[in-house]
């Protein structure tokens, strides 16, 4: 977090654009549950084909919820990366690597997903600090 006025990281969730997205997610989930319920009643009244759709709609609801959650996680990570980047201290005797192939966010993502890559990044950081001495 930088100095000045630190805005809480979750604030993006209540911006108008995100509120519209939440509303859409709720409406879509409700609509799909309603369709599933409708198919269930049709199935009960003798339409055998509707049994398939009775189970399909709830699966789509689950997928929709996962998708919605992933959008939040992605934005949360992105915000975290942009907040941290300027806070890095520019110490006099540490030589910065000339260019970064990845953004900080991409590195964090990779490290979370892949312990091998995290270890490799730590190794690169060690080499970098040794070179500075």
């Amino acid at each position: 977090m930088t100095g000045g006025k630190p805005r809480p990281r979750w604030r993006f969730l209540v911006s108008p654009r995100w509120l519209a997205w939440h509303a859409f997610a709720v409406a879509a989930a409700w609509g799909m549950l309603w369709l599933g319920d409708w198919q269930f009643h049709r199935a009960e009244s003798g339409n055998a084909l509707s049994w398939a759709y009775t189970f399909e709609w709830p699966i789509f609801v689950i997928f929709g919820v996962v998708f919605w959650a992933k959008t939040i996680v992605d934005e949360w990570r992105h915000k975290g990366a942009t907040d941290r980047r300027p806070a890095r201290p520019a110490s006099g005797d540490v030589v910065e690597l000339p260019a970064r192939a990845h953004t900080a966010a991409a590195v964090d993502d990779d490290a979370a997903a892949d312990p091998e890559l995290a270890a490799y990044n730590a190794y690169l950081a060690r080499l970098n600090s040794r070179q500075a001495r």
């Binding site: 654009r17 995100w18 992605d74 992105h78």
Partner: peptide, 9 residues
């Protein structure tokens, strides 16, 4: 790797 982009903007 394409650079990270904001989610909704």
């Amino acid at each position: 790797t394409p650079s990270e982009q904001p989610v909704l903007r």
